[in-house]
Amino acid sequence: MQLLRKLGFPISLIYALVVYLRNYLYDVGLLPSKAYKTKTICVGNLSVGGTGKTPMIEFLVANVKEQGRIAVLSRGYGRKSKGYLLAKPGIEVEDLGDEPFQIHKKFPHAHVAVDADRQHGISILEETIGPDIILLDDAFQHRKVRCDQYVLLTSYANLYVDDWYLPSGNLRDSKREARRANIIVVTKCPSKLSMAEQQRIKNKLNPGPGQQVIFSYLDYETTLKGNSREIDLDELRNKKVTLVTGIANPKQLVSFLGAQGIVFEHLAYPDHHFFREKEIALFNNKELILTTEKDYVRLEGKGDNFYYIGVSHKFMNGGKEVLLNMLGESLTAT
């Protein structure tokens, strides 16, 4: 893999040039960027996958709901449907996509829609739902929409300032675009990150005037939910466990389970993977399947031995209040 990335370096230079020119055209107004009457919050990153966008959207849906009617607009990656689609009772995960379906199932008060064309999706939401707030999932690079607030996520283990462009690295957008963020969240940190290390990272990110840098870690639930019942994480120590993941970066989950003394085999699949019948049959022959919540929405009802482990962001040093206060000030501004 490292050799392929090195061989792809010339391609990454071309990619970087295309990214730079595209952003330049938006910056000077030759490519238009549209603002909307509805307050919009963009959650995204500069790299491909693995920074915790879905838990961040869930955190915002859960904590900003008192501000009014909430809509979530996502691309719906991997779905089988096309165009704009609003989640309704009875909708299938294949039509909505795994991440939007997970949010729809967990937060019935939120209006969850998918559309690759974010301008089109926002316009329909405004016409049909009239939300007070629209959360744009994974939309930092979508310059056609000008949002009220931008929340940029970057993983502690792979800060965007240390990364390089695809295909040699993981960057899909320019590091320079971080200047558009109101809040930069360093995610997936060790739970006990020293103040000195936090300051070192802040210095490295070098935030601009008015930008806030906060830190979070992933907090895994110890009660596992499944089709038939709930079990405690400790029970896994006495079972033959198979971990099934179809996410961008399962390393932190693997490390967490190992630290809990749980022995397991790991079957890793590509991000957003829709499991085939042969794979489902394999899982049903295992004693216990443990998976992520995002994967579980694609597996639910297909076996009695499937359980998922929930995860959420936990913020350090008052980061939660910083995030919510900053967003609240924007949303109440006229």
Rank of each mutant, 00 (worst) to 15 (best):
residue 1 M to C: 04
residue 2 Q to F: 14
residue 4 L to T: 05
residue 6 K to Y: 14
residue 8 G to Q: 08
residue 8 G to A: 12
residue 9 F to P: 02
residue 10 P to A: 05
residue 10 P to K: 05
residue 15 Y to K: 10
residue 16 A to W: 01
residue 19 V to F: 02
residue 19 V to I: 15
residue 22 R to S: 11
residue 23 N to I: 13
residue 24 Y to H: 06
residue 32 P to F: 02
residue 33 S to W: 01
residue 34 K to C: 06
residue 36 Y to S: 02
residue 37 K to A: 14
residue 39 K to H: 05
residue 41 I to F: 09
residue 42 C to M: 14
residue 42 C to W: 05
residue 48 V to H: 02
residue 50 G to W: 00
residue 53 K to Q: 02
residue 55 P to H: 04
residue 55 P to M: 05
residue 56 M to H: 04
residue 59 F to S: 00
residue 63 N to F: 04
residue 64 V to R: 00
residue 70 I to A: 03
residue 71 A to E: 03
residue 73 L to F: 11
residue 74 S to N: 10
residue 79 R to K: 08
residue 80 K to P: 08
residue 82 K to M: 12
residue 86 L to F: 02
residue 88 K to P: 00
residue 91 I to C: 12
residue 94 E to C: 13
residue 96 L to C: 07
residue 101 F to H: 09
residue 101 F to W: 09
residue 102 Q to Y: 02
residue 103 I to V: 14
residue 104 H to N: 15
residue 105 K to G: 12
residue 106 K to M: 06
residue 108 P to K: 10
residue 109 H to R: 13
residue 109 H to E: 13
residue 109 H to T: 14
residue 111 H to K: 11
residue 113 A to R: 05
residue 113 A to W: 00
residue 115 D to A: 14
residue 115 D to C: 15
residue 115 D to P: 06
residue 117 D to G: 06
residue 118 R to S: 07
residue 119 Q to N: 15
residue 126 E to I: 11
residue 127 E to V: 01
residue 130 G to A: 11
residue 131 P to V: 10
residue 132 D to G: 15
residue 133 I to S: 07
residue 134 I to E: 03
residue 135 L to K: 06
residue 143 R to L: 07
residue 145 V to K: 00
residue 146 R to H: 05
residue 146 R to P: 03
residue 153 L to W: 03
residue 155 S to T: 11
residue 156 Y to R: 06
residue 156 Y to L: 03
residue 167 P to S: 09
residue 173 D to S: 06
residue 173 D to H: 02
residue 174 S to M: 10
residue 175 K to G: 00
residue 175 K to M: 01
residue 176 R to V: 12
residue 176 R to A: 07
residue 177 E to V: 07
residue 183 I to S: 02
residue 183 I to A: 04
residue 185 V to R: 00
residue 188 K to S: 09
residue 192 K to I: 00
residue 198 Q to M: 15
residue 202 K to W: 04
residue 207 P to M: 15
residue 210 G to F: 13
residue 214 I to H: 09
residue 218 L to K: 12
residue 222 T to D: 14
residue 226 G to D: 04
residue 227 N to K: 15
residue 230 E to N: 15
residue 233 L to G: 10
residue 233 L to V: 11
residue 234 D to N: 09
residue 235 E to G: 12
residue 239 K to A: 09
residue 242 T to I: 11
residue 242 T to P: 01
residue 247 I to Q: 01
residue 248 A to I: 04
residue 248 A to H: 01
residue 252 Q to R: 01
residue 257 L to K: 05
residue 259 A to C: 08
residue 261 G to N: 07
residue 263 V to E: 12
residue 267 L to D: 08
residue 273 H to L: 07
residue 276 R to K: 14
residue 277 E to K: 13
residue 278 K to R: 12
residue 280 I to K: 12
residue 281 A to H: 12
residue 281 A to M: 07
residue 281 A to G: 09
residue 284 N to V: 09
residue 284 N to T: 09
residue 284 N to C: 10
residue 288 L to M: 14
residue 288 L to E: 07
residue 289 I to E: 03
residue 291 T to N: 05
residue 291 T to P: 04
residue 292 T to W: 01
residue 293 E to Y: 08
residue 297 V to H: 01
residue 300 E to K: 14
residue 304 D to G: 09
residue 305 N to G: 04
residue 310 G to H: 00
residue 311 V to F: 04
residue 311 V to H: 05
residue 312 S to V: 11
residue 319 G to W: 09
residue 320 K to M: 03
residue 328 G to W: 02
residue 329 E to K: 06
residue 329 E to Y: 03
